[in-house]
Nucleic acid binder design. Structure first.
Length: 273
DNA sequence: GTCCAGGCATGCA
DNA sequence: TGCATGCATGGA
């Protein structure tokens, strides 16, 4: 991969295995919106980004060089060799049959707080509605960054809300979970950065002790927000896929179960109605 | 109108 | 430890 730092943009050449639509709109992050010029706009880690792919296959990004290196390079997991990982995952016949259709899905390294809140909202909910709730949450309680985009609201900001404030933006019964989480994180009772340094078992145990966080939400947060690529979240769709794996997950997934899961999740949603 | 969605807490056996 | 039930909401 070659990084060209221009005056007003960053150009990435030779990036392997990155499909913007599949990666940004596959249900792992909920704030990305495709624009009329087919570029994608969104916000993460307190920064705004617009990114597009030109006809030559290069990626054009709008941030400063500093923000690219400090935030977006890691967010898009650009230093991980997905091409090699996909080759390994293809040893499994089901993944092999799906990977060409969905090639280019990456696991985004999201902010732990945003990921945890987002996946608490996601429970027993559909992706379209999850996006709406998170948009209202950010528009109402996040600090403005630029271009009409707000940052994801901080724990402190959300701790000032009441349960009914959460419910007013459509969280439903999850409002009480969010209220307690915001209070505990803002108050220092839960330290998300510390969880990030833990071994997987301890990190998962800690997340499971949070009110409103069960196995599925914990696995999604660990995979998408805490960089544990070996987590394999099982939702209603993946549960259907698992019928194809009566012996358990194949050896070739080892260490990258979460990446395999994204391909299988996507395939299931499109094929197992 | 009914069913369902990137589930979880709770109560009861 | 394992299973049944209620939970908010809006799109299909």
């Amino acid at each position: 991969m070659i990084i060209e730092e221009k005056k007003n943009c960053i150009i990435l050449k030779g990036v392997k295995c990155l499909d913007l639509a599949l990666t940004l709109d596959c249900g792992q992050a909920f704030r990305w919106e495709q624009q009329e010029d087919s570029s994608w706009s969104g916000a993460a880690c307190g920064k705004f980004l617009n990114i597009k792919r030109n006809s030559g296959g290069d990626f054009i990004l709008n941030p400063t060089a500093e923000d690219f290196h400090c935030v977006w390079s890691n967010y898009f997991d650009l230093n991980r060799n997905y091409a090699d990982i996909c080759e390994t995952l293809k040893q499994d016949s089901l993944v092999a049959s799906t990977i060409d259709d969905y090639y280019g899905i990456r696991i985004l390294n999201q902010d732990p707080w945003e990921a945890l809140v987002s996946f608490i909202i996601s429970q027993q909910n559909n992706i379209k509605r999850i996006k709406g709730i998170i948009k209202r949450l950010c528009d109402t309680y996040g600090e403005e960054i630029c271009c009409g985009w707000n940052a994801f609201p901080t724990p402190e900001a959300l701790s000032r809300l009441s349960v009914s404030d959460f419910e007013a933006i459509g969280t439903g019964y999850r409002g009480k979970y969010l209220k307690r989480l915001a209070d505990d994180v803002a108050g220092g009772k839960i330290d998300l950065n510390e969880i990030k340094t833990m071994r997987l078992e301890d990190a998962k145990k800690t997340l499971l002790s949070i009110y409103g966080v069960g196995v599925k939400v914990a696995d999604c947060a660990l995979l998408f927000g805490f960089q544990f690529t070996e987590c394999f979240p099982v939702d209603v769709w993946v549960k259907r896929v698992l019928e194809f794996y009566p012996q358990g997950l194949p050896e070739c997934f080892k260490g990258y179960e979460g990446i395999a899961q994204q391909y299988l999740f996507h395939w299931a949603r499109n094929n197992l109605k």
